[in-house]
């Protein structure tokens, strides 16, 4: 399984639905991988690359919704599309509240399904790109000295050089030097770029708290 390729993972206990879905999705040139049960999926799937996961609700061992909740709790990253033969409102609400990307009723319009799959994959790619950017920003941030970090915090908070100098009890000149170093180390092209990159890591921190 190459990392760059997008794969649509399908978990459904009905062999004809699995087979026909593969036939349909492969017709638009998408890679497909199918699993007959949640446990088979959990055993075989190793997290890598991007794509999306299609889950049937009604399955013998554990339901698609339960699997979805389990995966989300483990920090599963791929967008999940839930499909079901008899949808009701509470079921849809439960799936979407638990973070499902979409909820589609069987039998579905092929156009809609393929559009949704593509949207999900794009969403997944965006997430991956953002993750990469965040990783880089984090690396750069870790290379800053303690003083530089203090100055960065001040700059992001919108404080003027003058005020910062007063607060940190150093000269304006020194502040300016720190700021120049900051920009280089963070590889920021402008003040706004610097702020965006810093906030990216901040958001990350919030997620972990």
């Amino acid at each position: 399984m190459s990392e760059s390729e997008n794969t649509v993972y399908i978990v459904d206990d009905d062999p004809s639905v699995r087979h026909s879905l593969t036939w349909l999705i492969e017709s638009v040139g998408q890679r497909v991988q199918t699993y007959a049960s949640p446990s088979e999926f959990l055993q075989a799937y190793r997290e890598c690359g991007s794509g999306c996961l299609i889950l049937d609700v009604r399955m013998p061992e554990i339901s698609g919704l339960d699997l979805q909740e389990q995966l989300m709790a483990k920090g599963f990253r791929l967008p999940i599309i839930i499909i079901t033969g008899h949808a009701d409102v509470p079921m849809a609400i439960r799936a979407l509240k638990a973070g499902a990307f979409d909820f589609i009723e069987k039998p579905f319009n092929d156009q809609l399904l393929i559009e949704r799959i593509q949207r999900a994959i794009e969403h997944c790619q965006n997430l991956t790109k953002r993750d990469l950017r965040r990783q880089k920003a984090e690396e750069r941030l870790s290379k800053l000295t303690k003083r530089e970090k203090q100055v960065l915090e001040g700059v992001v908070a919108g404080k003027s050089n003058k005020r910062l100098a007063k607060e940190l009890d150093i000269s304006i000149k020194t502040i300016e030097v720190h700021r120049a170093n900051l920009m280089t180390k963070m590889q920021a092209e402008s003040l706004s770029d610097l702020i965006i990159k810093t906030l990216l890591t901040d958001e990350d921190n919030n997620d972990f708290q």
């Binding site: 004809s16 026909s20 033969g85």
Partner: peptide
């Protein structure tokens, strides 16, 4: 189930 498969 079969209807879905037929459409697909």
């Amino acid at each position: 189930q079969p209807l879905t498969a037929i459409v697909n």
